[in-house]
Design a protein around this nucleic acid. Structure first.
Lengths: 247, 247
DNA sequence: AGTCTTTCGGAGGTCAGACCACCGCCAGTA
DNA sequence: TACTGGCGGTGGTCTGACCTCCGAAAGACT
């Protein structure tokens, strides 16, 4: 596949996207930078403002740009962020199952935990410890507990030193957030959960990858069970379709 | 979807996105379906055609819709497909390293191989065998070889029975395609590569998850080395930023 | 009759310019 | 000093006309 990008989008849109891409690649545009106002930028590229906006919109949809009404348009600066929304849409569209989400999460996060155990720095350990402490402190308020739970996992992703995997994990987990928030409400054993997080933290801090991986896996499987999202017995295979890359 | 999604997008755009989402969720819109012409759809939603287009563009950027100039706009039907373009953009933006790509790929694909060994159906085995055969048949033409290489890995992803992981893998690998194509040109040991694929196939067919995982990992590590994308010695930690979910 | 060519309608793509909505800042006021 | 109103800049939306592309029906040629 020579080209790249997708065929779906039209000429002008791609023109904008590619222009921005080159600006980023040659360092002219850095994360957090503000791009020129639409009117001006459009004049520069010699296209209408409408077309420019289409292109910018495309980039914003992919999380590369952040638009702030009345302020300006900026290059994304925070941690990489694939379209969070996309997964939930895709889920509805392709009928992703809950157990598949968990499976993906288990695979990603246990590896992430192992990597974090290998590479985590002091500051990561500190951050993790703080979140664990917060979890114990919020055992009484599930909603708050969840926040620190999520944060804890996020720190681990950071500590793994692999932003790609971290971003993927973020995408997957964020699409489960809503469901978790409901489940957490009637959770009875937050204490046990917190305990497990603490163990994971210890394994990572002690630089024991295998142990961290195993504990994380155990933790997530338990969470999966708590949410009744186990994989059902065997299922019919989906029709095997291995499309050529060509559109 | 109560929570965030992203703050980046404006009222009308989200209106369109949410409308389409509900149409998909309640089954009115199926993969492959054609949505009404822009002018008509815009009238239905009581918004301008321009705004409608912004929303549709957003969906298209995320791979949920496919737009065909002069024909119409359709709901994506093929395998799930996160914005292929996005990763390469994000890569340029956040400076993803080659070794990180490989690391992600190794983690994903070895797990995928293990799952495929557990769940692969006859048809998957058949398809894999075919691709392996094709690989041996195209040892002399690297470009063609690569095609079947990619296809082989894709079948494994299919066989894993987890479309989410498959989609993620696809996103990661597709962003490496270009580089691989160059590397393959001067490859001297395609035969060895083909041989490894054959072994992986055997392990999967024999339903030996652990073995399949290990072989896949070995295979990819070798590919990584061939491309000189190993992880350098130790690096400075990135500043730890754990943003709250709230925008 | 069968096939190639032309035409045309429908669908998306682009454009221009006016006007609306939002945010941040600064001057003026209490 | 602290509050408040207004202004300028920036993104958001609308209208409506025109362009380009694709596919199929209609017509012409063999």
């Amino acid at each position: 596949m020579p080209q790249s990008v997708d065929a779906s989008n039209s000429h002008r849109t791609m023109q904008v996207v590619n222009h921005v891409r080159s600006l980023i690649e040659n360092g002219t545009l850095q994360p957090g930078d503000k791009i020129p106002p639409e009117r001006e930028f459009a004049r520069t590229l010699k296209i209408s403002r409408a077309s420019l906006r289409t292109g910018i919109g495309y980039l914003a949809a992919m999380g590369v740009m952040k638009i702030r009404h009345g302020v300006g348009t900026f290059v994304a600066d925070g941690p990489p962020d694939f379209g969070k929304a996309s997964l939930s849409l895709m889920g509805a569209l392709h009928g992703f199952q809950s157990w598949q989400m968990f499976e993906a999460r288990i695979i990603l996060e246990s590896s992430l935990a192992a990597l974090a155990a290998e590479r985590g720095k002091e500051e990561h350990h500190t951050a993790m410890a703080e979140e664990v402490a917060e979890m114990f402190a919020t055992l009484g308020t599930p909603v708050d507990y969840l926040i620190h739970d999520v944060l804890f996992h996020r720190v681990i992703a950071q500590a793994s030193g692999n932003p790609i995997l971290a971003a993927v994990m973020e995408t997957v987990t964020s699409s489960m957030y809503d469901k978790r928030r409901k489940t957490v409400e009637r959770a009875t054993d937050l204490r046990e959960s917190a305990e497990m997080h603490r163990e994971i933290y210890r394994a990572i801090r002690a630089r024991k990858p295998a142990e961290a991986r195993q504990l994380m896996e155990k933790h997530l499987r338990m969470a999966q069970k708590a949410q009744g999202a186990e994989r059902p017995a065997d299922r019919k295979a989906a029709p095997i379709v291995v499309k050529s890359k060509r559109a």
